[in-house]
């Protein structure tokens, strides 16, 4: 293998040393220690966790500030851009695995563990009267009612689907450099996301207060809240990111050919959308 230097003029942008990654890590450590203490009933943990969270926000804001500065300062070109794109794609792939695992758990609990428990030899099983059914709270769980898929969840499906369309619209206008339309459609996307979250929170509230459906409602409750909760968390993150993008747009950031941050967030948003479709089918409907 022979190598001769020179020949290219490409220069890859390597950022300056930055204190924020390490700061962020230790902030996350505080959050972790605090939470671990808190769930074991040590109230002091709470304060450690708050300090951690505040430092996380600080470090993130500063870090992202640097990134935005570099982006607007023109340090990122095609080559760097491609790295960010690839990075985002692989990040989303890891998220896909995360959700796939939870769907796998749902499948396992529903199609393996519940039928198995119900089919144990009745002379010996501790739960001779347990029958295979879904939804179920398990042999010892309290009964509950389920959320009707054709009410709030169906509405939420519509909301998220249209938010996918609005964000695509916004992207379209960004590419055509029509700021007004861009801001309108992006704001609409955020609004739809927020309404989704409000409805979802309301649904959880009703599940707890009226349906008797809680985290403790056996495997149904556990998988229901795990999947919808994790998804809701992603929507929340998505809304926050979209808002940050909106603020940047209002400040005049991005141009038609150069707006990776916008695209990354919109990919993320579409991903969250697709996950919801699957949730709607497998968690609420079937």
């Amino acid at each position: 293998m022979s190598a001769n230097t020179a020949a290219t003029t490409r220069r890859y942008f390597v950022p300056k040393p930055s204190p924020y990654p390490a700061l962020l890590s230790f902030a996350i450590m505080l959050l972790a220690i605090g939470l671990a203490l808190r769930v074991n009933g040590y109230p002091a943990g709470q304060w450690i966790a708050w300090v951690g969270l505040a430092s996380i926000v600080f470090a993130l804001v500063r870090w992202l500030g640097n990134v935005i500065g570099e982006s607007e300062g023109g340090f990122y070109h095609k080559w760097e851009d491609r790295s960010f794109r690839l990075g985002m794609i692989w990040f989303i792939i890891s998220e896909v695995v995360l959700f796939a695992t939870l769907f796998g758990v749902l499948f396992y609990e529903r199609n393996v563990s519940v039928p198995w428990l119900a089919s144990l030899d009745t002379h010996f099983t501790p739960w001779p009267h347990f029958a295979d059914a879904w939804p179920t709270a398990g042999p010892l769980g309290k009964s509950f009612a389920t959320v009707n898929p054709w009410r709030i969840p169906a509405l939420n499906t519509l909301l998220l689907l249209s938010s996918g369309a609005t964000v695509t619209r916004a992207h379209h206008w960004l590419k055509h450099d029509r700021r007004g339309a861009l801001i309108f459609w992006l704001a609409a996307t955020i609004l739809l996301g927020v309404i989704f979250l409000v409805l979802q929170a309301n649904e959880f509230y009703e599940a707890y207060t009226e349906l008797g459906l809680t985290l403790g409602s056996g495997v149904y409750g556990a998988t229901f809240f795990a999947l919808t909760g994790l998804h809701g968390f992603h929507v929340t993150v998505g809304v926050v990111m979209l808002t940050a993008i909106l603020v940047r747009i209002v400040r005049g950031h991005f141009d038609p050919s150069h707006h990776f941050a916008f695209e990354a967030v919109s990919w993320y948003w579409h991903f969250v959308d697709v996950v919801w479709m699957l949730l709607f089918v497998f968690v609420y409907w079937l």
Binding site: L117, A137, G138, L140, L215, G216, Y220, T223
Partner: peptide, 13 residues
């Protein structure tokens, strides 16, 4: 948080 992913009492495994 009271879930039963891994406990048979709630239908888990």
């Amino acid at each position: 948080f009271g879930t039963h992913f891994f406990s048979a009492a709630g239908g888990g495994d």
